[in-house]
Design a protein around this nucleic acid. Sequence first.
DNA 1: CATGAATGAGATTTCATTCAT
DNA 2: GATGAATGAAATCTCATTCAT
Lengths: 205, 205, 205, 205
Amino acid sequence: MSIKQSPKLSAEKRREQLLSSAQKLFLKKGYRRTTVDEIAKKVGLTKGAFYFHFDNKEHIFFDLVKLVLGNYMAKTKEISSQNPSPADFLRVLFEEKGECRSDNFCYNIDFWVQAMSIPKIKRYMNNSFKKVVDNFIDGVSSSGYKNSKINLKDLAVFTFSLFDGLWIRHVVQPSIIDIPAQIELFDTLLKNNYLFKNKRGNNEK
Amino acid sequence: MSIKQSPKLSAEKRREQLLSSAQKLFLKKGYRRTTVDEIAKKVGLTKGAFYFHFDNKEHIFFDLVKLVLGNYMAKTKEISSQNPSPADFLRVLFEEKGECRSDNFCYNIDFWVQAMSIPKIKRYMNNSFKKVVDNFIDGVSSSGYKNSKINLKDLAVFTFSLFDGLWIRHVVQPSIIDIPAQIELFDTLLKNNYLFKNKRGNNEK
Amino acid sequence: MSIKQSPKLSAEKRREQLLSSAQKLFLKKGYRRTTVDEIAKKVGLTKGAFYFHFDNKEHIFFDLVKLVLGNYMAKTKEISSQNPSPADFLRVLFEEKGECRSDNFCYNIDFWVQAMSIPKIKRYMNNSFKKVVDNFIDGVSSSGYKNSKINLKDLAVFTFSLFDGLWIRHVVQPSIIDIPAQIELFDTLLKNNYLFKNKRGNNEK
Amino acid sequence: MSIKQSPKLSAEKRREQLLSSAQKLFLKKGYRRTTVDEIAKKVGLTKGAFYFHFDNKEHIFFDLVKLVLGNYMAKTKEISSQNPSPADFLRVLFEEKGECRSDNFCYNIDFWVQAMSIPKIKRYMNNSFKKVVDNFIDGVSSSGYKNSKINLKDLAVFTFSLFDGLWIRHVVQPSIIDIPAQIELFDTLLKNNYLFKNKRGNNEK
DNA sequence: CATGAATGAGATTTCATTCAT
DNA sequence: GATGAATGAAATCTCATTCAT
């Protein structure tokens, strides 16, 4: 009997498509609620094809965690060399100019909780976070945020936690939250602060 | 032959036990990963008994959302009458003195995502958030944070998003994050700010 | 919506039923070709019920291996105290008087191959076989089969291998093989043998 | 871009390679547990190539059954003209000198059960077995094993069942079983037997 | 001849829910 | 009120087979 097949693409292309599909779905519905069938169908394939490209559902998840964290680290690294303010980190993580694409970083707690339940990936994540914090410290100390009263590590945790919280609210209640305004607010709070004022001189970004 | 039965408690007691059990589990593992069996076993009952007290899994979830949001609203309402600073909201939500009990507020995105997927509860949540924001605005404006340059609604969103982010990181990576230090940092950032300084005079809480 | 349920039996009864059902099917079709659905349906249950009684398909298999080998050992132990001839072992293993019930011992190689692929069960099986061989040696040496020219351990292996071979042929081609005649033949070969003749005196069984 | 391909061999060569590969795998793991992918990979090909050479998995199985049984028949035919004792049949089936190559006869019950479930092959097998039995009878009666008390057909079944049983134990628990010793034992049992003694005179092989 | 991406049927397993006792 | 055996829908995963290149 004959079988209708989707056009064949290279494994590389398909892997990318499937990763992107999975990322969107995991973000929107969480790891558990997302089925392999959905991931595959979103790119016009069947379950079977999914298993040709990935060993199992957990594997695509691992790959995604690595991708996301790698991206995250790369971005923060990149910013750190440009004399950034803490708010600049938010700006870039939210993809320039507040245009937040919900398929871009899947900073979603379900994703995290799932990830943290697997020792291998948990270690990877803790290491990643340390690197991101280091990048942040490098970046902001070079741009005048070094201050005896503020522990820069705490400021990093503060910034990234704020990012997570904004991100989540953005995902869950997009109508309520205005990301660019929030970033501006963060920037304003820091710029008009005694703690940094004298250190940084004029605050043009 | 006789069957071992748990001592029969009043329906009211059992409901409370089950709600508490479900809350802890939903927080720790997410709605989907938590089974009815686990919820029941945690209080020494069987699945069957669960269905005597709740119509189904979604119902206990609804009840929990209402409970949690009610609590959240009550707390913020209470603080708002005590001339709070924004950081005070964090302080109280994190249960005073930085001692965070992980079973207290289940502000976990999986919980949210699940909740937002049900229209009835989505409306409820949006309304709750609006009330919480109003409580915040009431509170901080009475304590001198009214400032033409800062939109207080934005400051509320900022504060609650920060709370969410800190909370999540606390749940996922407890070893990395020092909640009291973060609250202090938030407080410091606001207190030493030009924007509020002249308006508020002395900042002792 | 309402559900039609099979009459409820005690877990103990159901386990026995399911074990028996699985034994017959594994014997007839092999482990792999037998589905959990079939095992359950054969006793009027659904897949779901199967998983209430057994953790998974491998577990029922383990239990069965233990049951079968335990039975095998017990039988050979029992015979060994009754001055048996080697053929008596076959007789009893084939359940008295050649009436072979195909659901009795599942001495089937698929069963074995599957079992041997799991280290835990492999050790168990090797130990069992050693015990069975010991029982055989005990039994036949007490009834005059001790003979310097014949290694009794070899005779044991010979007897049990013959049993396996007959059993398999009986399962696969029942029309071709006459078990009682084969047992008689084995007995005759031994009884009319110089090696044992002088040792055993008259050979009445 | 170019694709790595195995060197193209004649269809005949490939068929033989695939048959040999399949035989080894079916013996080791059973028909069901063996995948087409494994069969192909073992000779450096892909699934697709397999389907160029064989219509489907069942076909290669049929071909194998015929090959194996043909071999079996040919061997027994050959021996039967050499005045064999029953033990000689074992000897030859086990490939002279006790050096058992596990890839030679796949006399494995999974193989049989699978085969017997297909009527065409079942008839073929029953006929084969009859011929093998006839070869045996021809052989041993010419060498003095004709005896009124022993039905030679039973002796044939006995011998081949013993072979099966030894073979299986050899495959499953190679460390426990000493094939040459078993063959010797069989020979000894027959040689020192009243039933044949007077008929056969001296028994040197 | 051979590749390798894709299919689809079917197997194992999970779990919310039902219900007789 | 509570038990625990049973259901059934849905999810994950496997693998024989197809087919464009």
